[in-house]
Design a protein around this nucleic acid. Sequence first.
DNA 1: CCCCTCACG
DNA 2: ACGTACGTGAGGGGC
Length: 577
Amino acid sequence: MKQKSVCFDTETDGLNALHANIVGVSFSFKKREAFYVAIPNNREDATSILNEFKPFFESESIEKVAHNLKFDTKIINQYGIEVSAPTFDTMIAHYLINPDSKHGMDVLAERFLSYKPVSIVELIGKKGKNQKKMSDLTPEEISDYACEDADITFQLKEIFEPQIQKEHLKELFYNMEMPLVDVLKSMEQEGITIDDEGLKKYSIDLGETLAELEQKIKREAGIDFNIDSPKQLGDVLFDHLELSTKAKKTKTGQYATGEDILQKLKHKHVIIPMILEYRQLRKLKNTYVDPLPDLMDETDGRIHTSYMQTVAATGRLSSNKPNLQNIPIRSEKGKEIRKSFISRGKDFQLMAADYSQIELRIIAALSQDKNMIDAFKNGHDIHSATAAKVFNVNLEDVTREERSSAKAVNFGIIYGQSAFGLAQNLGISRKEAKQIIDSYFEQYPTIKDYMDGMVKSAREKGYVETIMKRRRYLKDINSANAVVRGFAERNAVNAPIQGSAADVIKLAMIGVHGAMKEQNLKSKMLLQVHDELVFDVHKDEIETLKTLVKNEMESAVELVVPLDVEIEVADNWLDAH
DNA sequence: CCCCTCACG
DNA sequence: ACGTACGTGAGGGGC
């Protein structure tokens, strides 16, 4: 028997799904047919009308289909209604079918249905202060547009569902990506608390230092210019101060002034360290310290990121508005920012759970390299173990430099790095770099075989896949252009590793979320940062949650190497590491 | 709207 | 001879 399946799409007066008001809902369950239900602009009446549809949204037998389901679910949730499984998101379906392309409804309608939908711009006008809101329009004006979206969703589903079956993406779609929608939705709704007062004080502090640095830099340069302009800065350094005769240029012809270039000029002129510090502080202030307090939700005072499930071609998540996956941790000045991410109150703390070396464990498992598997099974520090092998010394005798070189190679391997790249990274000669790489592959011979095998298989099949059969097509793998082909070859090696790690943590998140719900915990999962999960943990639940999270994360998949998760609890995100 | 730079894994 | 490590998001400059 074919399952009942209904597409829906919500129209709202804004894009903030936690607060936007619903204006109407369209439904479609038959090709070229749809219905629009206008919802009154008043919370109480809206709730009572939407309640008529509660049995539909919360049905455990009817499949709810939407394009970007997480958004619509958040809107519906505002009115006290759940959107229960089974669900089908056409945007995610297309992401699995072809992760490298775009997944917007308009693009997909043109490509798969040869149909150009009425654009939102035609309806409400271009962005700007004259742009109308959905709530400024009559139901008659919205109806066709809304119905069209529900109908397109229906028609896209008819195309994508069989493709999901055919491409062996069923398991990935129904048991991983669709359940994950609900997990991410919950994390976004929770949000994380920040110490905005602390950040505002820090901003003043940084502002003063920056003003002083600006004066000093301009005095050293002898002219007034905009330090924030790479173009002007390049001219000052290389034409005016003549700090280098062979200055590198970018592909657009201006002088390159990136961090690595400036580091090499550090001792040529006192202005360079000043610029490096200025750049760092400017970045921290403008990207994190100043914007974060402004992004606090007015009703709960927390920061609510959005996780994008269909952006990263490897299967990773991405985070935006704001991006909470690139909060500083490496520099001392940056650590202050991470410190300002705190628990929701005095009864709670933050708990961070990190996979240790997950990508290297995955490469060990996928390649079946005995030496690397043994290193992990014996619980050795993988970079030291690698150093011992590559430099042929005892594990106890590995020096800091040797370990750090080995670490660079271990990472380079994941990315398909060349001798040139390693040499640049370590500041050694290309010859030395080549020797290290050769020795590496002698010690881990199966890893070399594995990498060559991935490229070969990509050439034959046109795609590579992860442990959960997530695919990435590599159209350039047979390109005649060596540079272009090189990119595809590195992707052939990297995508299964990065993507399998993404598979593992996604499965873990579903397991953790389910177990936490089942045990009715007060603690909440808040953030995911590729190999890390962050929780607001109630003080009574610390031990319970630690055990639960460690178990779920370490047993998310069964590999020939053990997975290891490190967990710490503290008052802020920095100290939880 | 693209480019450069830089924050993270 | 050529380019050269994967995946992201965001801010500012400059056209």
